[in-house]
């Protein structure tokens, strides 16, 4: 599609309040099942901003359902939405990610599929645990165009050299887009009327007991460090085999002397250098680890703030 070639940079994502509540509802009902809630976002593109105006959830597709079933479901929903004048252009997908645990490979796949078809697509991650504690956390991601190109040619493209050439690093595989919430004026009238009882607001995040959360985060961090270690191992194995191969080549050349050129074609099959390892997984794991660290930082700063607040209330005792 020609639209994909126009590289309109998306500067922000604007979500309707109604969509947020629908997503919350879906996550609520999926809370007890093992699958994560996910669904489709619909909306349109305005200037540099992707507007999300509606969403619908995906049911849990079992293995018995074919791809055709999934297609049919989407088509049926879109037909219904068209009839009630909703925007029916898909602008992305959403998924619940409790504790910010996200399966990066899936994310990459989904976002690539969406972004290939519709340029403005964003992936929205929503943390229901944090929201239940009072802090609404929505993050939107897109893939940079370089990544799109390279992933399009298959994951084999991600060798060390190509990554260097494209200027990619683990930090900028996914671009985070700032999220903004907007409500129409009519909705604002209704929201202004709501008598929200402040005392029933969830404030459980104000507890000072941070240990269990820290433990869990650190455990996740150490797991992803293990994976990183494995990837690093793979690279060093490759280097070793490459070195050994070079040495073999050198020694063979010395032995053969002048006949080397004639024999080269025969030998080349056996003496092919070992293939360069794919670095995509490494990038992804590094990205995940980085995310964990950032989250940890956020959490720590929040905990410090809470400690200081508690100190303020405590200082005047006795």
């Amino acid at each position: 599609m020609s639209r994909a070639e126009i590289d309109v940079p998306i500067k922000k994502v604007s979500i309707d309040g109604q969509v947020i509540l629908q997503i919350i509802r879906h996550c609520q009902s999926e809370r007890d099942s093992t699958d994560l809630a996910q669904g489709v976002l619909l909306g349109m593109l305005v200037d540099n901003c992707t507007e999300v105006t509606y969403c619908f959830p995906f049911p849990e597709f079992t293995e018995a359902d074919t791809d055709n079933d999934i297609e049919m479901y989407q088509l049926d929903m879109m037909k219904y939405l068209r009839s009630i004048n909703m925007d029916h252009m898909q602008v992305g997908w959403y998924r619940a990610s409790p504790f910010d645990l996200n399966v990066i490979k899936d994310m990459l796949d989904s976002q690539y599929t969406y972004q290939k078809q519709i340029h403005e697509s964003v992936g929205l991650l929503f943390d229901p645990i944090k929201a239940a504690q009072g802090n609404l956390s929505m993050k939107a991601y897109r893939l940079s165009s370089k990544v799109m190109e390279m992933y399009g040619q298959g994951s084999t493209e991600f060798t060390v050299n190509s990554i260097l050439a494209a200027g990619l690093s683990y930090e900028n595989i996914f671009e985070e887009i700032p999220v903004e919430i907007r409500n129409s004026s009519l909705c604002n009238v209704y929201l202004a009327q709501l008598k929200l009882n402040h005392s029933s607001a969830p404030t459980s995040y104000l507890t000072l007991g941070t240990d269990s959360h820290l433990e869990k985060s650190l455990r996740l961090l150490s797991e992803s460090l293990d994976e990183l270690h494995q990837e690093a191992g793979k690279l060093s194995v490759y280097h070793k085999t490459l070195r050994m191969h070079h040495q073999k080549q050198q020694s063979l050349l010395k032995k053969r002397g002048d006949n080397a050129k004639a024999r080269d074609d025969d030998d080349s099959k056996q003496n092919r250098p070992p293939p360069a390892p794919y670095r995509l997984d490494n990038l992804l794991v590094a990205n995940q680890t980085n995310k964990f660290c950032q989250e940890l930082n956020q959490y720590v700063s929040q905990s410090f703030s809470k400690l200081f607040l508690a100190e303020a209330l405590e200082n005047n005792e006795s």
Binding site: G17, I20, L21, I24, R25, C27, Q28, P128, A131, A132, Q133, G134, N135, L136, I181, R182, N183, N188, L191, A192, L194, L196, H198, S200, A201, P202
Partner: peptide
Amino acid sequence: YPEEMSASQLFQRNLAIGG
């Protein structure tokens, strides 16, 4: 639900600063 409550409070707070 607790999440809806936080979202609604956020929306109400936003009203004060321009929506």
